[in-house]
């Protein structure tokens, strides 16, 4: 019962609230407004469609069709999934991303798409970095010995800190005047960098400190996965004259496939939920460069008092996240089933 009330009911409530207008300051009053919240969220005045808008991103997105086709031809993807993926990619990258406000036009909610875009940027930057570094560290640590145990503990330790301790340490560490990093920069004769106030550096910096904070979790999972690979396979391969890269490519990677899938999905889902780091460190600044979806939802609800609208945006984020993880499982786990 408890589960129904606190986990599944909120989902239903969110979908339902998404069709209402509800004010934080007068909670008792609510008014059914149909899909207006979604119109407010997705749409705008004077929108036009142009093939050339954001074309580099859209071409990259459309290229996603190629691996899907390859996977299909290798029998890893069912025909139905292939069609769904192709239609989805063309719809999102070919059509929807071409829509933008024309001359004198504007979005109804000028913050919605940019904050969602920033969330995506964080997901796209942080996932390969945190998963890749985690894998590299796990491979380096995957040997017997006391020192390795100590290092594993060390790399995991920041994971138990709360987000406000994380921001406390790094805000000062990164501070050009007070921090260790600024001091280090000066000692090698360089001008200290204002990591968090430079719009082009702020998001990569957030990724870097998130790496420090959470990579230990992935390392532990990768190490558990590596332990399951039979040592004798490596020995046999060495006898056959396989070099390090070949052993990695043909034994480690296939052996880790499940772990890799799991970690990637967990990481993407965790990255979509980014909030605390940016909310405390930058408040979404500089100039909105790190404003993410959850912050937008939070501010819509508690600063602008639009709870119905915030619910509608929660539903959108929820659908995107479930969609991404379903797609991932389908794509990468295709041959396991």
């Amino acid at each position: 019962m408890v589960y129904l009330i606190f986990i599944l009911y909120p989902v239903i409530q969110a979908v339902w609230m998404g069709f209402y207008e509800r004010d934080l300051l007068s909670l008792d009053r609510q008014e059914f407004i149909g899909v207006d919240n979604y119109v407010e969220m997705f749409w705008g005045d004077g929108l036009v469609w142009k093939a050339g808008t954001m074309w580099p991103w859209r071409i990259i997105g459309l290229l996603g069709i190629i691996p899907a086709v390859v996977a299909f031809r290798r029998g890893r993807l069912r025909a139905g999934s292939l069609v769904a993926i192709i239609i989805g990619l063309i719809a999102v990258f070919g059509v929807i991303m071409g829509i933008h406000p024309g001359e004198g036009g504007r979005w109804n909610d000028s913050q919605f798409w940019p904050s969602f875009g920033n969330t995506l940027v964080f997901v796209i930057m942080s996932t390969p970095v945190i998963v890749g570094v985690g894998l590299a560290m796990a491979l380096a640590l995957n040997r017997p010995g006391r020192l390795v145990g100590v290092l594993r503990t060390l790399f995991f330790a920041p994971y138990v800190l709360s987000v406000s301790v994380l921001t406390l340490i790094w805000a000062f560490l990164l501070s050009p005047q007070l921090g260790l990093i600024g001091a280090f920069w000066r000692s090698i004769g360089l001008e200290p960098v204002s990591w968090l106030t430079d719009p082009s550096l702020a998001m990569p910096t957030i990724v870097a400190l998130t790496l420090w904070w959470t990579v230990g979790f992935n390392v532990v999972l990768f190490l558990a996965g590596l332990q399951d690979i039979d040592e004798s396979q490596y020995e046999a391969a060495s006898l056959d004259g396989a070099n390090g890269w070949q052993r990695f490519r043909h034994i480690t990677v296939p052996g880790l496939r499940r772990t890799l899938l799991l970690i990637t999905v967990l990481q993407i889902i965790a990255s979509f939920q980014i909030f605390g780091q940016v909310f405390i460190l930058t408040r979404g600044g500089p100039n909105g460069a790190t404003r993410v979806s959850i912050q937008h939802i939070y501010e819509a609800a508690f600063r602008d008092a639009q709870l119905g609208y915030a619910s509608a945006m929660s539903v959108f984020l929820f659908v995107v996240m479930v969609g991404v993880s379903a797609l991932q499982f389908n794509f990468m786990g295709g041959d396991n089933r």
């Binding site: 589960y3 009330i5 606190f6 986990i7 599944l8 009911y9 909120p10 989902v11 409530q13 969110a14 609230m17 509800r22 909670l27 889902i269 979509f272 939920q273 909030f275 959850i294 939802i297 939070y298 609800a301 709870l307 915030a310 619910s311 929660s314 984020l317 929820f318 996240m321 479930v322 993880s325």
Partner: peptide
């Protein structure tokens, strides 16, 4: 199914309850 629900995306309805 509850495992699939991202907690951070559901704080508004929870707040309303």
């Amino acid at each position: 199914a509850g495992l699939m629900v991202p907690k951070e995306a559901m704080f508004i309805p929870l707040f309303l309850i």
